[in-house]
Simulated assay, not measured.
Amino acid sequence: MDFAHLALARDPHDRLGLHRTDDAWLDERWADDAARVLVVSGTRVRPRDGALEWVPTAKAPDGLRILLGDRDGTTWWAVVVDPALAKAEPDQWFPLRGLLPFLTGEAMATAPLVFHALGLAEWHWATRFCPRCGGTLTSRAAGHELACEQCGKVQFPRTDPAVIMLVTAGEPGSDDERCLLGRGAVWPTGRFSTLAGFCEPGETLEDAVRREVLEETGVVVGEVTYFGNQPWPLPSSLMLGFHGRAESEEIRLDDDDVEEARWFTRDQMREETAAGTLVLPGGVSISRSLIEHWYGGPLPGSW
C-alpha cells in the first residue's frame, strides 16, 4: 500500500550541512539565478494563485537567510522577514497547517523543503534568548545555529519525539478485530483519530505508547511494533507511528484531552465513513496511514 504521509519526505533534499559556515560558497550559491527562495513572515507563508511561491534570490526581500539545500541541481533557501508583514495581511499568510492543502500533486515534492523552512522559522521565533544566561542570540551556520553573545553557548534546533498509535483488539484479520480511536474535546462530533502524545524524558518510545493510551483511555497495551515516521513541524515534532495490541478493552476516560473513545470494527468503519458519521484525518497524516493500513485499503472522507 502507498502511504500518503510518506510522500511528504519521499524525495529529501541534500541539506548541504558541510557548507553552512562557508560564506564564500553561500554567496556564490545565493548569486545563482536558478536558486529559489521561500519568503516566510515570522512563521507564515503567503501562497499566490493557489500555490506556494518560490522566488529567485534577486526578488527575495532582506531578512534572515536560511540554506535549505540542493534538490535536482537547484539551491533552495528560505528568507525569514518581519512577522508584521503577515499580521498586516492575516487572510493571505498561512501557518504550516494552513499550507497543507497547497502541498498536493507535484507541489508535494517541495514538502520536505517547506517543512525544513518553517521548522527553522518557528525555532528562531520561539528561541529569543539564551536559556543559560538570558543573553542575546546571533544566528549563524546559515540559520541552523544560535550563539549567545554573552556566554558563548550555542543552541541547535530541537525536535520533539511524539508517538502516534493505532491500538487493536481481537483476532488479527478477523471480522471481530477492532481498532481504538479517540475524539478530542474541542473536535466536532464524529471526528476521530488515532491516539498520540509526547515522549517524556527517560522513556522509550514503546513505553510512551503504553503510557499515553492508558492515560487517555484506560486501555492497557502490551505488544508495540513500529510502523513508520513523519516530520511534523507543528511546531517541532517528529511523529513516530506504532501499532499496539490491547490487553484490556474497557475504556475509562480520565484525561480531559479525550472527549470520546470507541472501538471500531472494519465493517463499522466502512459504513460510518461512507455515511459521514465518522470523519478521519486527512490523507497526508500518518494517522490516516495507520488507519488505512489496518483497514486494508482507502476509506472515504477526511477532515
Rank of each mutant, 00 (worst) to 15 (best):
A31M: 10
E272G: 02
G184W: 07
P281Q: 06
P112Y: 08
D22M: 04
V37M: 09
N229Q: 15
R191D: 06
G173Q: 08
P281A: 06
G69W: 07
G202V: 08
D82C: 06
I251N: 05
R46W: 00
A126M: 07
L26D: 06
G135F: 04
N229C: 10
Y295E: 00
V55K: 07
F156M: 06
C148Y: 02
R262S: 00
D267C: 00
V167Q: 06
L180C: 08
I286K: 05
I251W: 04
T57N: 11
F198P: 06
S193V: 03
S139R: 03
G283S: 11
A9N: 08
C199I: 11
S248T: 15
V284T: 12
A196Y: 14
W54F: 15
L113A: 07
T110N: 10
A196R: 10
P56L: 12
Q230C: 05
P281H: 02
P47R: 04
L181T: 03
P90A: 09
V80H: 02
E216L: 14
F129R: 14
T194E: 04
R97V: 10
C130N: 03
L6P: 00
L253V: 07
V167G: 04
R140E: 11
D175R: 13
G241W: 03
S285T: 14
T265C: 00
M1G: 14
E145C: 03
L181S: 04
W54K: 05
G202K: 08
R211S: 11
P12H: 06
V79T: 09
V220A: 15
R132H: 08
R211Q: 12
D72K: 06
P47S: 06
L214Q: 13
E249K: 09
A162N: 08
F242C: 11
V224L: 12
A7R: 15
D70I: 11
L96Q: 07
R128E: 12
D72R: 13
P101L: 11
W303V: 14
R178T: 11
E260C: 11
R10V: 00
A31R: 13
L280E: 06
G105T: 07
V39H: 08
E260R: 13
A9G: 11
G197R: 13
P56V: 11
P172I: 09
A142Y: 05
L137R: 01
G184L: 09
G301S: 10
P131D: 02
E215Q: 15
G184K: 08
S237D: 06
D82E: 13
V220P: 01
A31W: 04
T277Q: 01
G282S: 13
T104I: 13
T273M: 03
P90E: 11
L180R: 03
L214I: 02
V221D: 05
D176P: 01
P235L: 01
A141Q: 05
C130W: 04
W263C: 05
V219H: 05
W93V: 01
W76L: 07
V163D: 02
A261H: 03
V220T: 15
E215L: 15
F264D: 00
P300L: 04
C130Q: 03
L64T: 14
G241Q: 08
